[in-house]
Every structure is written in structure tokens, then in C-alpha cells.
Design a protein around this nucleic acid. Structure first.
Lengths: 184, 184
DNA sequence: GGCAATAAGTTCTAAAAAGCAACTAATCCC
DNA sequence: GGGATTAGTTGCTTTTTAGAACTTATTGCC
């Protein structure tokens, strides 16, 4: 009766949930963004109203995952701050897409919502979307999903999906058109 | 000692966490995407390995929030399926941005990861990013944050941020350059 | 330098949520 | 009609969260 970990699922989303999917994690990350990328323990506590023990645990998880790092405040000192790493700052599209999703569908826009603007030109940022290879926004219906395996890429033809039922015949005959420069 | 709800925080992210931020919620939504937008109770259970009572509760939360809806499988029948609503399908950028974030930073790419391609042209989708008003991708450092209030929009000048300390002097003198067509 | 205040936790206890298995009621298939 | 399937519900145990008190080291201040 252990709380289930998602880390054994062959799915990037499941993997990431063990890091950023726990209660408070996302809000802690948001607070780092609001705080210019750097926050101290009591700052986070005051700002979020989170319990100390939970905050301790979350900061450890995020640190272990390389989302934040602990840095000494002054040279050689023993007082620390936590700050976003490059990996942590790279969560920007995740945070912004969630905020924008909520605001697109929220019935009564309350008070004091956060907004973001382009530093160079002062204009509001645009909506985060899933782009095709030309950068044009795609909707869910415009996509199909595939499964990348060491043997190649397979089109998922049938629903419900059973990964184990996929055969060699499902292998896609695709040109090397990968946009994502990844050694797969 | 009630579990804290984020719904009283004046932050869109906090609000949304009550809906999609709980353990399993995101993976359930992902499974709907994988399942072509529609899934049945036992399908979700088998696919995810989630407990029945937890699944029941999450489906209710997601239904109440309008992310999914319960529909009869045949006309007048009493057997149902759950399917994504427009609001649910609009979570696509959230799901994809999390998956892409994980894959950008994951050290050892495992087996069987999911991928998405443009249905029209077969090409891989691009990376989800936060765009400026011209559609050019922005990084965290290219942004500044503001607070939208009923009285106007305020620039957040100081870190750490204390919402309550913001004065009328902080009001931005901005032209009506909002990209997001929202009646605020 | 001494002392109160602060910072960053740790430890304790209680409540809530998650996990598991067994049970149930309705429906479908033959 | 009867067995299997579906979509839960109920009961119990473990884990997580919440809140508060306690701890240790540092820091500002006189």
C-alpha cells in the first residue's frame, strides 16, 4: 500500500509527475518565477502558506531533480537561498500554458491576476500553443500520436491503446524529418 | 487539519491546481488524449492502474470542472463513457509542454516514449514555447510580470513580491495593446 | 561580547488522501 | 434465465499533508 510512483511508466508525463506533479510543487515553482528565480525558505513559506516540513520535502525533491539549486547567500556563508536552474527556468511554457488555460475558461475573472509582458516592447505575451513544423498552432484534432521505440517509430492506429500489441508492421516509414534534435 | 485548497489564492495557477493538480489528474487527462478523447471507466483503470475509488473521485472532479463529460454509449442506454470537452481538449499545450520539458532534460531516453505528428503533413510537431506578440519564442529573462487589478495593471518592481504593498503609483500607463481578447 | 530575533529546518500528532481488496447493483450477451 | 462485465461503493490500512512546538545556528543590535 505504498503511494504509487509513476516513474516506471513509459511515459514522459508520468515521469515528470513524480517531480512537479505533487501537491504544492507547481506552486513552489511558480513562486520562484514570481520571485525573479530566487527565493529563501521563509520567503516561500510566507508567500505560499505552506507547512515547513512539506516545504522542506518539496525543496529536496526539486533540488534532486535539478529544477532548483541551493546556493550560499554570501561567499563562504552558511545562509542559503534556492534558485531556479536552467532546467527550472525551462518550465516557463508549462507554467504559462496552465495559467492561460485557466484564464481562457474561467467564468468570473477575479482580482489580482498575474500577467506577463515582453520586456523589450512592453506588449503582452501571446498564447502558448502546440506548433507544427512551420510554427502554426495545432489543435488536438490536427495531431496523431506515435510511439517511439528503439526499433523505430510506430503509429498508434487503434483505440484503446495497448502498447504491447504493436507489431513490426506498425513501424512508420518516415524520412528523417525530426524537428527535435534528439539522439533517440 | 483540512487539506489545503488553493482556490482562495488570487492566482490562476493555484486555482487550476484544485482541478488538474491532484495526484493522478494529469495522467487521467493524458489518457483521454491518448484514447482519442474518449474513455470508459474500466479502460482508464486498466490503462493507468489506478484504484477504482480514486478514479471515481477524479472523474467527478474533472466532470464538475467541465474538463470531461459523461455521455451514454448508445442512444437511451445506461452505459456510459467519459470524453474530453472543448475545455479539456484545450489542455493540449499543457500536456505537450510538460512532455517536451521532460524529454529536453531527461538524461537517458528510455523506450516507448510518445510522440506527436502533424496529421496533415506527417511531420513532428515543434516545441511549445511562450511567444511574444509576433510569435517569437521568449525565455524567462525576456519577460516581466505584472499584476492585473480592477483598477488597472501594475508592474511588479521589487522582489520579493508583496501584492499588498503595491500602490497606485505602480499603475502602468499602457496603451490598449492587449493581445488576449478578454473582457477583464 | 551578550542577547534577543531570525532562519531553516526537525519532530510530533492528527486529519485527510491514496491504495487495495471485497462487495454490489445494474446491464449485457448468449 | 444465468454468467460475465461494468461502474462503481464500502471498509480497512498505509502514506501524505497540516499545523504547531521544538531545535540549532546565525545575525542584528546595543
Amino acid at each position: 500500500m505504498v503511494k504509487k510512483s509513476f516513474s516506471d511508466m513509459a511515459c514522459s508525463l508520468a515521469q515528470s509527475m513524480d517531480v512537479i506533479g505533487e501537491w504544492w510543487s507547481m506552486l513552489i515553482v511558480r513562486d520562484f518565477f514570481v520571485g525573479g528565480g530566487r527565493r529563501r525558505f521563509e520567503q516561500l513559506r510566507d508567500s505560499l502558506g505552506i507547512s515547513r516540513n512539506i516545504l522542506t520535502e518539496r525543496l529536496r525533491t526539486l533540488t534532486d531533480a535539478g529544477v532548483i539549486e541551493k546556493v550560499p547567500l554570501q561567499e563562504g556563508g552558511r545562509r542559503y537561498a534556492y534558485q531556479l536552474t536552467d532546467k527550472g527556468r525551462d518550465l516557463l511554457p508549462v507554467i504559462v500554458s496552465i495559467i492561460q488555460w485557466w484564464e481562457r475558461w474561467e467564468q468570473e475573472p477575479g482580482e489580482g491576476y498575474m500577467n506577463m509582458r515582453d520586456r523589450q516592447r512592453g506588449e503582452e505575451i501571446g498564447q502558448v500553443s502546440v506548433p507544427n513544423s512551420r510554427g502554426e498552432p495545432l489543435q488536438y484534432g490536427d495531431l496523431f500520436m506515435t510511439l517511439r521505440t528503439p526499433r523505430g517509430e510506430m503509429k498508434i492506429r487503434e483505440w484503446p491503446l495497448d502498447f504491447r500489441s504493436l507489431s513490426e508492421d506498425d513501424l512508420l516509414d518516415l524520412p528523417g524529418d525530426s524537428l527535435n534534435a534528439k539522439a533517440s
